[in-house]
Design a protein around this nucleic acid. Structure first.
Length: 331
DNA sequence: AAGCCTCCCAACCGCAGATTG
DNA sequence: ACAATCTGCGGTTGGGAGGCT
């Protein structure tokens, strides 16, 4: 590990002016620094990181504070080893997203991009390399063999059609550790012409009043996380097979949302997730107990995007046969 | 016990895009 | 329009820990 650096060496990271940088500390954080940052964040919340560094009485640049908070001090971080389910999910998401660690991390609650990147580089990469070197002696098999594992299709990002055929996130059975490795195999992409259609709801109107940052509910924003977060929005949604859907309001902040998020995690099924709201787990839900929430990934050009929406479950079930999702089923 | 080696991971670095003045 | 600053990302580094000889 790095020793705390009190040498006064100028920070070449460019995060603060040089005359200030000369006084800044680098290297490992002391418990006292952690406490200062933690106290400040609890009291004031996240703001401008340069201000955080200054106002919390830390001789660190804002960038360093941000990193320490995100990777270590944040209260929602999960600690400890990765579970087999998480490991499989990482491998799967990496096959779709490549080294987009932040996007992968957004789909693993409580894990950071740095943590996942380290895990990948130290453990999974090695393991996949061993597997590929023991199973294939092809002259073309080098480190790029792992990139082929990455998406199964010669190192490029998969198309939307291919992606439609893949599970986008943690399988619903994963919470009961029933995830089999076959869950994530790339299916034969020629199978289902239905999936050539554009899929997933397109948010037609800018939602209002976004609370929290986990889901960025701008039109199908790729930065959105699959799990967790607080959402508070309303607006009109366009769904190819259902037409426009008016969303009155959904996702209040607080415990109710945390509970419903847990349901989202458990109910994921292939490309979509859904969460059936009810008055027990979401006391602020104005839509009533017969509504489902659907979230998923779609491709727009080369970009992986996220979409989300809510529908009346009866309406949805009436139309489920034509609903443009693969393997849609209500659990 | 001592030296060497490898692994792991916290933290840094540089860059690019976004934001601000 | 431009420069300065902020923010976030992915790649890389360095050193503690633990295993091996």
């Amino acid at each position: 590990m790095r020793k705390p650096d009190t040498s006064g060496r100028i920070n070449s990271g460019g995060c603060v002016p040089l005359n200030v940088a000369a006084k800044l500390r680098k290297g490992l954080w002391s418990p006292e620094e952690d406490e200062k940052l933690m106290n400040y964040m609890v009291r004031n919340g996240q703001g401008c990181w340069s201000d955080v560094a200054r106002n919390a009485g830390l001789l660190r640049c804002g960038k360093s504070c941000r990193l320490r908070w995100i990777n270590y001090l944040r209260p929602d971080l999960k600690r400890g080893a990765f579970s087999p389910q998480e490991e499989e999910l990482i491998i799967h998401l990496h096959s779709i997203l490549g080294n987009r660690w932040s996007q992968i991390a957004a789909r693993l609650p409580g894990r950071t991009d740095n943590e996942i990147k380290n895990f990948w580089n130290s453990t999974i990469k090695k393991r996949l390399k061993n597997i590929s070197s023991s199973s294939s002696r092809s002259p073309n098999t080098s480190d790029s063999s792992m990139d082929q594992a990455r998406d199964g299709i010669n190192g490029r990002l998969i198309t939307n059609q291919e992606h439609n055929m893949m599970g986008a996130c943690m399988h619903p059975s994963s919470s009961s550790s029933a995830l089999s490795s076959s869950t994530w195999q790339l299916p034969n992409i020629a199978l289902n012409p239905m999936n050539l259609d554009p899929i997933l709801p397109i948010i037609d109107q800018q939602p209002t009043g976004i609370a929290g940052s986990y889901f960025d509910v701008q039109p199908c924003d790729a930065q959105g996380g699959m799990f967790g977060g607080n959402i508070d929005f309303e607006g009109q949604f366009m769904v190819p097979s259902l037409g426009s859907v008016n969303i009155e309001q959904s996702g209040k902040m607080g415990n109710s949302v945390e509970k419903s998020n847990a349901n989202v995690m458990n109910n994921m099924n292939n490309i979509i997730n859904y969460n059936q709201f009810n008055n027990n787990n979401n006391i602020n839900n104005k839509l009533g107990e017969n509504n489902v929430r659907i979230e998923g990934l779609c491709w727009e050009g080369d970009e992986l995007r996220m979409a989300m929406g809510e529908w009346d479950i009866e309406e949805l079930m009436k139309d489920v046969s034509s609903f443009p999702f693969l393997d849609f089923q209500v659990l």
